[in-house]
Design a protein around this nucleic acid. Structure first.
Lengths: 344, 344
DNA sequence: CTGTTAGCGCATTCAT
DNA sequence: ATGAATGCGCTAACAG
């Protein structure tokens, strides 16, 4: 009896089982199941009925094997406890689903090593395309170039790889940062500090440029002490704020690379009884869900988050449909929008 | 399932390619790749080297087909723009990775239909087990029972299915709700309202029981107008709050099913110049990241979020290792902890 | 309309 | 230590 059960566990109901019971060939069963037109109506009904009765489920693995496709696209994000990446994923999923594709998500936890492991998972699962935003540590791109060589399209979003010629979706980071700093200056601030992210990330470089441009445009002195790069570990934000506060000539505004950072900056300032925005104004980037809930409300640069996901997925689906020699490598740059609240 | 597969086959590097280049049989290549002992050391090295050079990746679809396993476990969550589910996922990923399993994540976006589609993806990828927290719409469980029939273990967490006898990981929702309401009453509140979630969710039922128990224990009158179920759509929270405020005998405290709801309640109250907690105190559930950042800080019932993921993954891995006839269906109940802040 | 045959990429038995 | 052959479950020519 026990052996019987063990065997049962292994044995899947297949089209052959159905075919045998019905005394027809498995091809006919297959055709009936897939809705092929040239099957006798009566045969089809008998197959469908028996399949239902026997709890038959198609084995998509074998189908994927044949078609060399899994109808799945993968997405790798470095982080998702904040609302940014989840919202991108939701946008991407929307487009993918509409095209009949499923989405599998991997989380690289800002670790290069995990990212490489994730790409292996994607390869193993035969994804038809990959969406990715790289980790803060990623400077080697071999694991991603593999996809190109294999003819599996990649689309970058948010954190892109500069050296790879593939579609990318970003926002106008330079313009976004520019408008944030411009706004602060218009509010009367003269010494705007920028707590930037890792210098190797393209997105951070661009925001750095926007920052500098805004200063120049307003003929404000460029002070390199006011631009600091940090590794996105929120625990270290306090040190950086302390550095700013320890300067001979303190900043009167802090622009932060993203909203979580800005919120942490605000927490540190509040703890020190520094008034926001009177003493020091704060501006973030992204318009996270939290930013409207805290006090004072955080002024921030809004990104069309779900749209980033939608566009990225659409570009990927376009690539998937194209032959490899017709691949296009456009970069889509979406607009940002300054959201003014009470922190500035 | 509709046939969406398109036909362009990108050529994959297979063991046959490697075998041909090396002038050996594909069996030997296979053995070298899988680490079979009886392969000449030199042969193995040549194979490994060439595989590396050619960017060869094993095709999981075919291996999965043969082995009926993919070393992958799936996780389906209904929502993840808040920090709750992402943190659970991170915990689960930790355990899975340690056991050599990969984790693929699907997002059901609180839609029954999407959840069903997600389970198909999991089946397609031949996951060895499934972790799931159901959507608020899910009342039919056929798509999940399929897994049991196929011998693929399932573990529920947070939002569990009552009628299925499988392992589950929840927190002590009844006790958590009890302690929240007990706390409010100790603070002098006499009319505690509860804005609960969908009545069909087990987790909501349990919290409802905790709420009622606390009232009873304190000999407070049970008023059915003070207990409302809502569909977790934050846009409708305002109506419910307005209902409470329109009562003859208004509540002096509102306990909300989760933190986002509580925060929305607070927003509505603040808009109406109602003082928190003096006029109406507010308590949430989960200790979301936001809750400590807003003002006043939200009193809430903390859940061991990552631990939920870890335990669920561990239970699943245990089931995977067991034969189907040895499956255990224990329910693990983790402890909650009341976090007192200024909203109560 | 339906049956036959041939793989998809790989692991695995059985040979040698 | 290696090669040949078999088959996982299914679809897709190619016959009838």
């Amino acid at each position: 009896m026990k052996d019987y059960f063990c065997d049962m566990k292994k044995h899947q109901i297949t089209i052959v089982d159905i075919a045998q019971k019905l005394g027809i060939s498995k091809s006919t069963v297959s055709r009936a199941l897939t809705g092929h037109p040239s099957v006798h109506q009566q045969t089809r009904e008998r197959v469908l009925k028996l399949a239902e009765e026997m709890d038959y489920e198609r084995n998509m693995l074998s189908i994927g094997l044949i078609k060399n496709s899994s109808l799945t696209i993968g997405i790798i994000v470095p982080e998702f406890t904040r609302s940014f990446f989840p919202k991108v994923i939701i946008g991407a999923q929307e487009k993918a689903k509409a095209a009949g594709y499923n989405l599998i998500i991997c989380h690289s936890e800002e670790s290069y090593e995990t990212e490489v492991a994730n790409t292996k998972v994607m390869l193993l699962h035969q994804v038809d395309g990959l969406l990715i935003s790289i980790t803060k540590e990623t400077t080697n791109f071999e694991h991603l170039k593999v996809f190109q060589r294999k003819g599996i399209p990649i689309v970058f979003f948010n954190r892109v790889c500069e050296e790879m010629v593939v579609p990318k979706v970003i926002v106008d980071d330079e313009e976004g940062a520019f408008s944030a700093v411009q706004h602060l200056i218009k509010r009367g601030k003269k010494r705007v500090a920028f707590l930037n992210g890792p210098a190797n990330l393209h997105v951070c470089k661009k925001r750095g440029e926007g920052y500098k441009n805004a200063l120049q445009r307003n003929k404000l002195q460029w002070d390199e002490q006011l631009l600091r790069h940090y590794d996105l570990d929120l625990n270290t934000v306090e040190e950086h704020v302390n550095f700013f506060l320890g300067l001979q000539d303190k900043p009167d505004a802090i622009f932060a690379i993203n909203d979580p950072t800005a919120i942490e900056v605000m927490r540190v300032l509040k703890k020190k009884q520094i008034r926001i925005p009177e003493d020091i104004a704060v501006v973030g980037f992204s318009n996270d869900m939290v930013s409207s809930l805290i006090e004072p409300g955080l002024t921030t640069v809004e990104q069309p988050v779900a749209e980033i996901g939608r566009v990225a997925a659409q570009l990927l689906l376009d690539q998937i449909k194209r032959n490899i020699e017709d691949w296009k490598a456009q970069t889509v740059i979406l607009k940002t929008k300054l959201i003014q609240r009470d922190s500035s």
